[in-house]
């Protein structure tokens, strides 16, 4: 089966699982008065692992699915998740960061973007709520709670997608060095 098809199938399964897990379980686990949101994390990590285009499409479809499942305003989540996926994908393409803490930082930014992005969109759509200190505090707490689960979510997304991703040149080069056969130093 072509690599692109395998990746598409895995992304579809990942999206379904993430949205179902979010609406059925994670959203009902209250921590510090709020709950984690794993969907923006999954979208951002797809961007980190699979690139801009894949992540933006994944974000659009995941957003569409979650708005459909929760009978929300269609397109709202898609718009926020497309931005998150595209941003994470661009980070990978421009910087390709390798630190072990990158998923945590990306998870925090993605969670903040989702929390504040949804609030902003709902204000733009006419939600009658004052911008108060409590609201800001709740959004910050929601961001922190989501960030707490960033690393396990990243591990799960990586595990799910890695077999379907084209072999990364950097990883292939690193493996070649460690096995010794292709090191420039060993060449005659």
């Amino acid at each position: 089966m072509p690599t692109a098809t395998v990746l598409a199938l895995r992304l579809t399964a990942l999206g379904l699982l993430a949205v179902l897990l979010q609406v059925s379980a994670v959203s009902q686990l209250t921590v510090f008065g709020t709950n984690a949101d794993v969907v923006p994390l999954v979208v951002a990590f797809v961007g980190l692992l699979a690139g801009t285009v894949n992540a933006a499409i994944f974000g659009f479809v995941a957003g569409l699915f979650i708005d459909t499942a929760l009978i929300g305003t269609l397109g709202l989540s898609s718009l926020v998740y497309v931005a998150i996926g595209y941003g994470a994908g661009r980070l990978r393409e421009l910087r390709d960061p390798q630190s072990a803490l990158v998923p945590l930082a990306v998870g925090a930014v993605a969670s903040a973007a989702a929390a504040f992005g949804f609030a902003l969109m709902q204000f733009l759509l006419g939600a009658e709520a004052p911008v108060s200190f409590e609201l800001i505090r709740q959004l910050v707490v929601a961001t922190l709670v989501s960030t707490l689960v960033a690393l396990p979510v990243y591990a799960g997304v990586r595990r799910g997608l890695l077999p379907a991703l084209p072999d990364d040149p950097r990883r292939r080069r690193r493996r070649a060095y460690t096995t010794g056969g292709l090191s420039p130093l060993s060449r005659p």
């Binding site: 959203s27 009902q28 984690a36 709902q122 709740q138």
Partner: peptide
Amino acid sequence: VIGRTPNVLNQV
């Protein structure tokens, strides 16, 4: 209760 929305303003 079998599900709830994840964001702060939209409490459903």
